[in-house]
Structures are given as structure tokens and as C-alpha cells.
């Protein structure tokens, strides 16, 4: 079954074609990577998926619904961690989790989420006093507190040190094992290759390849996803 369907998506901002005909599908329960360099249209595509932006053209279906129309109903079933979104300075970790938990009709137990993501020792700490890694972990936990079927993670590990990155990778693995559909947006090819079942490679607002990392690497006759990306770039120039 398909969790997400994107067909011929277009989005232009003031003359710039951010997304220029993107098509891909994400199967239920898989971890799907959206990879490419900054400005490739990854975030715009994802923002259309979660109903933050309305596409100029094309169709988007998430769990069978159009995010631009049924945003509220869909929001009950989707969780997202956005690029550099943050919380008020003085809100405490436990308060943030409880607050976000109460925004959903059916949410996970916020205390359990706090435990599971190792945030319990930070429960009484204010958001402004958290380290970058701790903030990231909290924002990830907030994306999951609504007990979503689909989770979108945009630049999850950007700015994290190598240890925190590895730890986050393990957590994404846990999500997958729990049967959650994960869309992972990243400009780290290594990360995408390690975590994702299938990948869409983005370049200049288009998808240059979709498939398992192994398929893409084999098709381009390269040794890694990153090399494959540059090989595909060369073809399109």
C-alpha cells in the first residue's frame, strides 16, 4: 500500500522553480529518503506533503488525503520535525511534550515518549538551556508524541556531533521497526544510504533517480550514492 503519492508536483516562488515536476511514491512502513544538495527542492516538496504549502500544479496524496485540503484531519496522523523550528526559550522539556501531546485527539503517552527518547533526565530543563543535540532529540520526540503513521524528518542530523548522529540513526531504525512510515530529508548521502529502504535523488527541483540505494548505485555504475548523485547530475547538464 502507498502511504504517500506525489505526481508531477510544481511549485514556483517569485520566478524560481523550486519544484519542477516531481513524482515519487512512498510505501507504507518504509523509510524513504529525499536526498540532494541545498536548494534542490527537498524542503518545498516536504512542505507540500505536510500541508504547509499549496502546490501550483500536480497531485499530492498522503494516507489517501490531499494535505492542502484536509490539513487538520491529516495532521492527526502525521508527525514532522522541521528544519530549524524551535520552541519558546522558557518552556521546559516535560511541558513541551505534555503540550504537544494534548494537541492531538489520540496521542501517545507523553511520559513514555519522554522516557523512550532519553529526555526524562532533562524533564525540568528549559528549551533555551538545551544543547543542539538535546533540542534535536526533543523536536524529534515532539514529532512522535501524536503517535503518527507517517513521520517527516527534515535535516534531522544537521549540526549534530558524530555520536549524536549515530544515536539518532539508531532511533530512526527503531521507528522503522515499529512500522512507522518515515520520510527522511537529508543532504548527507551516507546517512540516506545507511537508513533508507528507497531513495529519491533531487537536483534542481527534479527527481533524477528513484529506487533502493543499491539500485541507483548499480544503475549509474558508481560505488556510492554520493557518486551516483554526481553521475546523474552530469547526465542532466
Amino acid at each position: 500500500m502507498e502511504a504517500i503519492e506525489v505526481r508531477d508536483l510544481h511549485k514556483t516562488y517569485g520566478g524560481t522553480r523550486a519544484v519542477d515536476g516531481v513524482t515519487f511514491t512512498v510505501r507504507s512502513g518504509e523509510t524513504f529518503g529525499i536526498v540532494g544538495h541545498n536548494g534542490a527542492g527537498k524542503t518545498t516538496t516536504v512542505e507540500c506533503l505536510i500541508g504547509l504549502r499549496r502546490p501550483d500544479a500536480g497531485t499530492v496524496r498522503v494516507l489517501g488525503a490531499d494535505p492542502a485540503r484536509g490539513r487538520r484531519a491529516l495532521a492527526e496522523r502525521i508527525g514532522a520535525q522541521l528544519q530549524d523550528s524551535s520552541l519558546p526559550e522558557r518552556i521546559k522539556v516535560a511541558e513541551a511534550l505534555r503540550l504537544f501531546g494534548s494537541l492531538y485527539r489520540e496521542a501517545a503517552d507523553w511520559r513514555q515518549v519522554m522516557e523512550r527518547w532519553g529526555l526524562a533526565p532533562l524533564a525540568g530543563k528549559a528549551f533555551g538551556d538545551l544543547s543542539g543535540g538535546q533540542r534535536q532529540r526533543l523536536m524529534l520526540a515532539l514529532a512522535l508524541v501524536g503517535d503518527p503513521e507517517v513521520v517527516v524528518l527534515d535535516e534531522l542530523t544537521t549540526g549534530l556531533d558524530p555520536i549524536a548522529r549515530r544515536e539518532t540513526w539508531r532511533q530512526v531504525g527503531d521507528l522503522k521497526r515499529a512500522g512507522t512510515t518515515v520520510v527522511l530529508v537529508s543532504h548527507y548521502f551516507e546517512e540516506t544510504e545507511a537508513l533508507c529502504d528507497r531513495v529519491a535523488v533531487f537536483a534542481r527541483g527534479r527527481v533524477t533517480a528513484v529506487g533502493t540505494p543499491g539500485e541507483i548505485v548499480a544503475r549509474t555504475g558508481t560505488a556510492s550514492l554520493e557518486e551516483a548523485y554526481f553521475a546523474l547530475e552530469g547526465d542532466n547538464r
Partner: peptide, 15 residues
Amino acid sequence: SYRERKFLKRLAITP
């Protein structure tokens, strides 16, 4: 500051 910190944007993807 809620807008600047993208807290509003974060809330916009909740129900």
C-alpha cells in the same frame, strides 16, 4: 519571537 523561532510554523503542522 514565536514567528522568528518558527514555533508558529511548528504548530501549523499539528491539528
